[in-house]
């Protein structure tokens, strides 16, 4: 049994890391907004989904314009992901402006904002479904592929107890781009003036405003950054997994949120780590559950496995693995 698990490990790592980085970037969107507004922005998963659809829309557009054959794939990819990120970033800002800010102004209870975000989540799903069906006749869309060259890591010949791992070229793209986004965001939050303002507002909004910080503008910036990253990750997901539908944001959103909780909600580096961990656990479970349980549970139970881990972590460490340092209020 152990031998079997070890054999599969290289592939588990490849798949787990890919999925884990996707979770990590989406988790950041949840954790940033929670850090500032104490709001679980349920619509964030659907921003991710919308990014996937906008990205594939651009790809179809480029194909119909005949640009695909004349431009290098990497350039097309960069144009598409940047445009999609800008659009979803703008959508995040707009949603905050129209739906959350008026509630904040009236000091509405947090629960109301939470329910509003669920409503927005449904609106986005239906809107995307409507447009997808109208344009393609089906709400499940198979996206054009850009990077589908398959590579094999021939680790078996060096270490015979491992099986070889396979991946598509899109894996490298996902990996490189998510890592760039994670490092970029970390630098933004920790090294720039606006990142500092964001942290200040998250820690004490009232006092930040006494220090000339326009809190509403900082909140807009937060939504823009989180939603742009979420949308860009949607594009990566679309390239990596090929088929998308308007409901991919729901499950993935819940898992990314789980990752954020795992890392300590509000903690950005925690969310990165939580995402990676969840991706790895999930892929490990998918590959080995059947072996581990003697065929009783198949790989389709991987989600349950991931959530059991979450529950265990929360029982023993309710503030998450990297919980926020406690704020002392005088």
């Amino acid at each position: 049994m152990l031998q079997h698990i070890i054999q599969l490990l290289p592939q588990v790592l490849v798949d787990g890391i890919t999925l884990g980085f996707v979770y990590a970037v989406v988790a950041i969107g949840y954790t940033m907004v929670y850090g500032i507004l104490e709001l679980i922005n349920f619509a964030h998963g659907d921003i991710f989904m919308t990014g996937a659809f906008i990205g594939s829309g651009f790809l179809f557009l480029f194909i119909s314009l005949g640009l695909m054959s004349s431009l290098p794939a990497l350039l097309v990819f960069l144009i598409v992901i940047i445009l999609s990120a800008m659009i979803t970033g703008g959508m995040g800002v707009a949603i905050e402006r129209v739906a959350y800010r008026p509630l904040r102004k009236r000091n509405a209870p947090k629960l109301i904002a939470l329910i509003t975000s669920i409503g927005i989540s449904f609106i986005l799903e239906d809107l995307v479904r409507f447009i997808a069906e109208w344009k393609t006749g089906n709400y499940i869309v198979t996206a054009p592929s850009l990077f589908n060259h398959t590579f094999t890591i021939d680790i078996h010949s060096i270490m015979p107890f491992f099986n070889n791992a396979k991946f598509q070229s899109s894996f490298i793209v996902v990996l490189v781009v998510t890592i760039i986004m994670l490092i970029g965001l970390d630098l933004f939050v920790n090294k720039t003036k606006w990142g500092m303002a964001m942290r200040a507002v998250a820690q004490d909004r009232e006092t930040a405003s006494l220090m000339t910080i326009n809190v509403n503008r900082v909140i807009s910036v937060t939504f823009f950054v989180g939603s742009a990253l979420g949308g860009a990750t949607g594009v990566l997901f679309m390239l990596q997994y090929g088929t998308i539908d308007p409901y991919i944001g729901f499950i993935l959103g819940i898992k990314a949120f789980t990752a954020a909780v795992l890392g300590g909600i509000g903690n950005i580096r925690g969310a990165m780590f939580g995402g990676l961990m969840l991706g790895l656990i999930e892929m490990f479970a998918a590959a080995n559950l059947s072996t581990l349980t003697g065929g009783l549970f198949g790989s389709e139970y991987k989600d349950v496995f991931a959530f059991i881990i979450l529950i265990l972590v929360l029982i023993f460490k309710p503030e998450g693995l990297f919980g926020k340092a406690t704020i002392e209020k005088v």
Binding site: K193, M196, A197, R199, A200, Q203, D204, E206, T207, A208, L210, M211, T212, I213, K324, A325, I327, E328, K329, V330
Partner: peptide, 25 residues
């Protein structure tokens, strides 16, 4: 400028960052 009751330091910003927030504009 108002120095609020209870000081209201940003607890997880460094001393330098706390000061820099004052010069945000």
């Amino acid at each position: 400028a108002q120095v609020p009751e209870g000081r209201r330091i940003f607890p997880r910003l460094t001393v330098r960052e706390n000061l820099l927030v004052g010069a945000f504009a």
